[in-house]
Amino acid sequence: MSESEFEPKIVAFCCHYCAYTAADLAGSMRLQYPPNVRVVRLPCTGKVDILYLLKAFEDGADGVYVAGCMEGDCHFINGNFRAKKRVHYAKKLLDEIGFGGDRLEMFNMSASMGPRFAEVAREMVDRIKKLGPSPIKTVQTQKSGDKP
């Protein structure tokens, strides 16, 4: 698969109070952003669990990001800070297995930042296009019993 044909699948875990609303606003403003991004709405990024992030990759995501409120503006006071720490930890886990922590990122934005939402989506799509498809898609898993 050449780089130009590669259309990454990206999962964005978005907070209901900010990034999800910003996505809505981007739509209302008729802003273009790549269709590669699948949004999962969370009541707060504080709900993000390391397991969700890893499962997204396991289920075939090429990139994952978490978009929460601006720091200091969390509806639940510090949910976005918790998310930041978990993303950081999960990045380390991904680095450890050679998957690459760069495929995962944390962003902050407010509900009024529709253009920023579109920009982040483009930024992530660009980054993942450069990194290429998820390492688990580029290899053919051998049948049980074969040794590499």
Binding site: L54, F57, E58, I97, F99, I136, V139, T141, Q142, S144
Partner: peptide, 10 residues
Amino acid sequence: RLSRKQKGRA
């Protein structure tokens, strides 16, 4: 699972 998949191993 992620690590093994990357290496093409089941």
